[in-house]
Design a protein around this nucleic acid. Structure first.
Lengths: 230, 230
DNA sequence: CCCCCATGTGACGCAGTCGTCACGAAGAAC
DNA sequence: GTTCTTCGTGACGACTGCGTCACATGGGGG
């Protein structure tokens, strides 16, 4: 049940494709002119785009480049469609960052399956959200945290706090920033809760707790570089 | 700089592939027998697998099925490799959930680019911590969950449970799978904990609780399609 | 050297969450 | 319809995690 944008100027092809896509249970949008693409993508936010290279108004390749250079559309998967079956073109498309490449004449069933494959990947992989920072590994999916491959059991609040600190290890995170990010406080509140949780975090981190550095009068910072031993 | 497992029994092909992969800066592992695959994947945790359909010991298709039915390996992208270029085989592979399909003879450069395309997708999407599924929005970063933009307060366990269910809305999640994924139970345990948490989840979801469907004797499934009204 | 203030630390009570159990309801098999 | 199994549900006790407070510590400015 995904929203798919098909961009092609040949009515019989778009019809063929959308027929198959709808049969698979997808919602299907169509555009026939390259200039319509960006506005449509921004407005409709499709889950995937099928893009013909040959287009009137603006050729498909430059449409594709625009999609990939705009941060709002960069992550939308694109399958390229073309009549030229030469390997060089195929490589051009993939090289630019297309997710797949299908040459005409193509089996609409195969296209539909390739679409499904990419959509599945998009969804599955989203869950692989392990972020490694130095000897620290943050596994968002299982909400687990590892230091030198040793699992460390953190509570929800501790996990969030550490996540914010690890998000940027070169910046100092002010007290109000942390209170906002972790606790959702919008205005400055004088509370010792943050201090207590920093303490608990340091305790659980053991040796690694030294990486959590107090910036007096400002806030806290997670410093990766080996902290100066006491 | 990704780890890639190439499974093929033809030395010249594996050599060709690994040469190109290493040139692109990837780390390359090889297996020549289907039986080696599962252990290697579990131990090495490759980022992507290139799998030939024709293998001694165990044919590629059944290796692939095993990879896709085990939750520990389900999310690893697989590119299928085959000598049979017929469309039917192509469809077979994609249908089973391969991420791509390349027929011999193939351009090693094209294969490398397809690999890069899939890896790029894998990585880009990893950073998107918000996953939208139908009217449901799961925000892993802030560990928040929304239904029709209404925030729903979930506990850690409830969040994990729902995350696994939403991971694949087209599959039934068995009781043992859920107990393993959420609670970390490795062997089958007879417990009513799961039932209770399903109940609590349904309560908190309110109307949307209907999407959590019991598959009697098997487990549970999150079904997006509008549930049959009572 | 002294004082002030920011932070560290331990203790405490409340609220929320968890797992278990007993009982009832609902399917499935026959 | 009967029986057996599976699942839903409510209640309960134990435990964990949380925020607050009081007091200790320690750095910096005067």
């Amino acid at each position: 049940m995904s929203k798919i944008l098909v961009v092609d100027d040949e009515p019989d092809i778009t019809e063929l494709i959308s027929l198959h896509l709808m049969r698979e249970g997808h919602e299907c949008l169509c555009a026939t002119n390259g200039l319509q693409v960006m506005p449509m993508v921004l407005e409709q936010q499709p889950d995937l785009i099928v893009l013909d290279i040959m287009l009137p108004g603006q050729d498909g390749m430059s449409v594709f480049k625009r999609l990939r250079t705009d941060s709002r559309t960069r992550s939308v998967p694109v399958i390229m469609l073309t009549a030229k079956a030469q390997v060089t073109d195929k490589i051009n498309g993939l090289e630019l960052g297309a997710d797949d490449y299908v040459s005409k004449p193509f089996s609409p069933r195969e296209l539909a399956l390739r679409i499904t494959a990419i959509l599945r990947r998009t969804k599955i992989v989203t869950h692989v959200s392990e972020v490694k920072t130095g000897a620290f590994l943050m596994d968002r999916k299982n909400m687990k945290f590892f230091y030198n491959d040793q699992p460390i059991n953190l509570t929800t609040t501790e996990f969030k706090l550490l996540a914010v600190l690890l998000e940027n290890t070169s910046a100092v995170h002010t007290r109000s920033e942390l209170l906002r990010e972790v606790w959702g406080y919008s205005d400055d509140v004088a509370t010792r809760t943050l201090d207590t949780h920093i303490k608990r975090l340091r305790e659980k981190l053991g040796d690694a707790g030294k990486h959590v550095v107090t910036i007096r009068g400002i806030g806290y910072q997670f410093i990766i570089e080996a902290p100066v031993a006491a």
